[in-house]
């Protein structure tokens, strides 16, 4: 009986321990990260501002390994390894509810200067799509860091060589040309909406539950005509000669695809890219925002950051807090309008 008791007791301990390890691992990882960056020896640049006095958390709305996560980790890594702040920055993942989990988490921390969060297209779209009782105005913009450009790609053996070929084919009949994309209402349908507006065609939209990767499979299998993606999502396929980029939606040509003309060059006056920025909870003091915006500016000069931009085909597009806010105010109505028309575009 005693033995049973002891083995029982040890198993309870074991299970409790395992539970702790498993749930605690998420934080352990960050502790490991902060150790190497944790240097408090460097003097603060603004002695009057006592900030930061402890670890700054950078919250991400996706799982580790997703685009937003790699973006946040690059920033944290640059800050920690170059010692741009006296205290380390650690990345915290709050995935789920297509961003809602993170927004709720950050909303509850109003006034907390030790919380940063990813601010990207999702911040403008998720509240509308998911009927969340919040908007981008409930957060403090800190800085825009980069623009993730969008490109139009077709299968390598596609008959469409230029945007003109694609638009001409689409003009034959409404929905004659199919765009494969990610989740319903995802940002890849925004650029196609703008193209539709400029050229008067109507595309056939084919959404995928599994996101962009599934859309690429559909395209590779010849079940759709084109995709609109960030360069990082398709560059591997392009290099292998499986996909071909026919247009980029930027003002100037992309360094990663120097031979591909822009939409403008091809007579379609459309530019669109997805911003990647940083925001904070409401009611954070302006001095702290100013401090962080300066730190983030320094991040853009690090090699780590430049390498990240190059690897992922992003364009450096730093904007300080004030300009970032103005940018969000300008973009929000566009996002809202595109989202509202999405369902009617499907129904047509």
């Amino acid at each position: 009986m005693k033995r049973i008791f002891y083995s029982g007791f040890s198993i309870i301990l074991m299970v409790a321990f395992i539970g702790l390890v498993v749930t605690g691992c998420g934080t352990k990882g960050k502790e490991a990260n902060q150790v190497q960056g944790g240097s408090t020896t460097k003097q603060q640049e603004q002695p009057q501002l006592k900030y930061p006095e402890k670890t700054v958390e950078f919250v991400v709305h996706t799982n580790p390994g997703d685009g937003a996560d790699i973006y946040a980790r690059t920033i944290a890594e640059a800050i920690n390894s170059e010692k741009l702040m006296p205290q380390p920055m650690m990345v915290l993942n709050k995935p789920g509810g297509s961003g809602a989990n993170m927004y709720n988490f950050v909303m509850q921390r109003a006034g907390d200067p030790y919380i940063l969060m990813t601010a990207q297209a999702n911040l403008l779209t998720s509240p509308i799509k998911n009927n969340l009782p919040l908007s981008y105005k409930d957060f403090t913009p800190v800085a825009r860091m980069a623009i993730d450009p969008l490109v139009v790609a077709v299968k390598a053996d596609s008959k469409y060589k230029t945007m003109k070929d694609l638009i001409d084919a689409a003009k034959v009949a409404p929905k004659a040309v199919t765009q494969a994309g990610g989740l319903a209402g995802a940002t890849e349908y925004f650029l196609s909406y703008i193209i539709e507006q400029k050229t008067g065609v109507v595309f056939n939209l084919l959404p995928h539950r599994g996101g962009g990767a599934e859309a690429v499979i559909t395209l590779l299998g010849g079940n759709a005509d084109f995709v609109i993606m960030n360069p990082s999502e398709i560059v591997g396929q392009v290099e292998a000669g499986k996909l071909r980029v026919i247009a980029v939606a930027t003002e100037e040509r992309l360094p990663s695809f120097p031979d591909v003309p822009t939409l403008k060059e091809q007579g379609i006056d459309a530019t669109f890219g997805l911003f990647r920025g940083v925001a904070m909870p409401k009611d954070v003091s302006p001095e702290i925002v100013a401090y962080l915006e300066k730190v983030l500016k320094q991040v853009t000069d690090t090699n780590k950051w430049k390498e990240y931009l190059k690897n992922n085909g992003l364009i450096s597009a730093y904007l300080p807090a004030k300009d970032f806010k103005a940018y969000l105010d300008e973009q929000a109505p566009i996002y809202e309008q595109v989202l509202k028309t999405y369902e009617t575009r499907l129904a047509n």
Partner: peptide, 19 residues
């Protein structure tokens, strides 16, 4: 495998048919 792919991306690799 999507998370595994994220692991490759995190190391600055470009996963694709040329891997």
């Amino acid at each position: 495998t999507a998370v595994l792919l994220g692991g490759l991306l995190m190391h600055g690799l470009r996963p694709g048919p040329l891997l």
